[in-house]
Each structure stands twice: as C-alpha cells, then as structure tokens.
C-alpha cells in the first residue's frame, strides 16, 4: 500500500481567499506600476525622465507591467494550481519574470528609436495606433492573441521547473508582444499620455471580456486613439 500522501494543513478564511487568488500580488505590482506612470500620464509633454534613454527604458517596462499583468490572472491561477503548495508564489514569480523579460527585450530598441531624430515626430503615435488598427484585423494577430493565452505544462520540481516556467513566461510574453506591440508603441510615443494608457487598457479589457474576439471593435478603438493623438 502506498500509504498516505502528505498535504499541507487546510488554510483559514484569509488563506483560502489567497489560495483562490494567487494573482493578488501580481495585481499589486501592476497597481504600483500605474502609480509610477501617473506623473507621465498627467503631463506627458513635460515628463523629464522620458527624454533620456534610461527613462524611456524604465518607462517601457513600467508600462508593460501596468497594462499587461492584469490580463495574466487566469494563467497565474493555472500555474499556482499546478505547483506544489510551497512553490506556488515562486512559480508565479518566475513566470512573471519571464513574461516581463520578453517585454523588456524590446525596451532598448524603443529607447534607441527615441534617441533618433524621428523618435519624437508628432505623427509617430498616430502612425502606431493606425498600424495597431490594421494589425488587429489580420488572422496573424488573432493567432498571436490566442497563443499568448495558451496553456503549457511545466515540471513541478528540479531544474526544469525553472526553465519550463521561464520559457512559459517568455513564450506568453513574446506572443502578447506580437499581438500588442503597435498599440504599446503608440502609448509610449505619446509620452504615456493618460488617454492612450487608459485607452490601451480599455482595449485589453474589451478583448479579455468578449466571448468572441471583436476585431472590428478593437480596430475602431485603435482608430479613435490614432485620431485623438493628432491633438497632442
């Protein structure tokens, strides 16, 4: 007889809530990132840190954390449920690091672009949002969107635990970047203006709450952002 299997003791009411919502601290990280972004959002044209490559680098990562992490809740719940009790939070953290690393990989390119003479062209945001509108009408966008939420199994222990979860995060991050990059570039080129950041978040919410991915609606929202950015 295999005998008994060891289980962690049943948690109390708070512990049960935290167990059911392992994404709580990731949402908190996202909220902190929003707080970091508020000065940029309120006065995008006067934001001094956005005018330096380092500031652009940090701003890009903070924007990705603020806007993208809330949409990982379901994936995070799935990872926590499939982890040993003592590794739930650390497993989620490794995944999130992999996810943000994928987004961070684009930050130097963005910072470099901003250092060129065209980096602050006034039509930059409009072009990016228009590209986002066209992009989300394509079949490739739909596939990228679906793959950014695809489930992947991972090893529960050992060195593969690390590599599988980092790889899972990087993979989700890359596909989400493929799907959202033009939109995010548009937000960044506005200097993280409030209308663009909140508009981008709204587009993400529409996308995540819809039974059928409303590609036309999303494209229309991007067009609205493109037009609005002309008044910057």
């Amino acid at each position: 007889m295999i005998g008994v299997i060891g289980m962690s003791p049943e948690p109390g009411p708070l512990g049960r809530w935290l167990w059911r919502h392992p994404e709580w601290w990731v949402i908190l990280v996202s909220l902190c990132a929003w707080l970091v972004m508020i000065p940029h959002m309120v006065k995008p044209a006067e934001c001094s840190c956005c005018s330096s490559p380092g500031g652009e680098f940090v701003g890009w990562i903070a924007m990705a954390a603020a806007m993208m992490l809330p949409f990982l809740a379901e994936t995070i719940q799935s990872i926590a449920a499939r982890s040993f009790p003592g590794r739930r939070a650390s497993g989620v953290a490794i995944f999130v690091l992999g996810y943000l690393a994928a987004w961070a990989a684009f930050a130097p390119i963005h910072a470099l672009w901003r250092s060129t003479p065209w980096g602050y062209h006034e039509l930059g945001p409009t072009v990016a949002f228009a590209a986002a509108a066209a992009w989300c009408m394509t079949p490739t966008w739909r596939i990228a969107h679906q793959r950014s939420h695809a489930f992947r199994s991972f090893a529960a222990t050992g060195p593969r635990w690390w590599s599988d979860l980092v790889g899972y995060g990087v993979r989700c991050g890359i596909w989400s970047m493929v799907a959202c990059l033009p939109l995010m570039i548009g937000c960044a080129l506005t200097g993280h203006a409030a209308f663009a950041m909140l508009g981008g978040l709204g587009i993400g919410l529409i996308e995540s709450r819809s039974r059928i991915i409303p590609q036309r609606t999303l494209a229309a929202c991007c067009v609205v952002l493109a037009v609005a950015s002309l008044w910057l």
């Binding site: 299997i5 060891g6 289980m7 962690s8 049943e10 948690p11 049960r16 167990w19 059911r20 449920a81 499939r82 982890s83 040993f84 009790p85 090893a155 529960a156 222990t157 050992g158 593969r160």
Partner: peptide, 10 residues
C-alpha cells in the same frame, strides 16, 4: 475547494 499538487512526472 483546496486541491493540492502532491506529485508529478519530471
């Protein structure tokens, strides 16, 4: 509603 992982293939 607390279900815990107790073993897995490597």
């Amino acid at each position: 509603d607390i279900v815990q992982l107790v073993g897995a293939t490597p």
